[in-house]
């Protein structure tokens, strides 16, 4: 089963228009050095310029995308399998959990868990080898932790219950 999104270009252009509007709106809150000065060359100048240029470029691209939509059928890149979609969402969720729990459980434990679960998610059907995934998770995370903390004397997130 596949998911086809022929409108992705149009959705992207609308998102860009919203972003340019957000940049324009937030630029108004930037404190300028001399608010009463007649000079327009201040901290707001460049963001205003960028939001205007982004809005204009997004409008041109929106026009092009609508024209293309009527002219050509969906290209193969618009097609994505449901399995792939699940893997992408799962990867994003795993990465978000990894980032969120890093300060609580520390780099070593979270990295081991992350590598193990990510290998499971990415492995093609019939190729999943759990013992290999487990060994890879422990060895790679351990080696990286040791290299950076012991050899290169870098500080990595560490849980309170871990002595080293």
């Amino acid at each position: 089963m596949v998911v086809i999104n022929r409108y992705k270009d149009i959705i992207a252009c609308i998102a860009l228009l919203l972003l340019s509007a957000a940049v324009y709106y937030n630029t108004g809150f930037i404190r300028v050095f001399e608010p009463n000065s007649a000079s327009y060359i201040n901290g707001q100048f460049f963001p205003y310029l960028l939001s205007g240029a982004l809005c204009l470029a997004a409008l041109i691209q929106l026009f092009n995308s609508i024209r293309e939509l009527h002219r050509s059928p969906a290209d193969k890149d618009s097609v994505i399998s449901r399995g792939a979609l699940i893997r992408i969402v799962a990867t994003l969720v795993i990465l978000a959990i990894y980032t969120a729990l890093l300060s609580t459980f520390g780099f070593l434990i979270m990295s081991m868990l992350y590598v193990f679960v990510q290998v499971i998610v990415l492995s093609p059907k019939g190729r999943l080898n759990l013992p290999v995934a487990a060994v890879l998770a422990v060895v790679s995370s351990g080696a990286i932790y040791f290299l950076f903390t012991q050899v290169l004397t870098m500080v990595l997130p560490r849980p309170p219950f871990m002595p080293f």
Binding site: F107, R127, I144, F148, L156
Partner: peptide, 14 residues
């Protein structure tokens, strides 16, 4: 690559 990429991600985190 499904073995390489997760290791690369933790290097990115470092």
């Amino acid at each position: 690559k499904y073995y390489l990429l997760p290791v690369i991600v933790i290097l990115c985190a470092v």
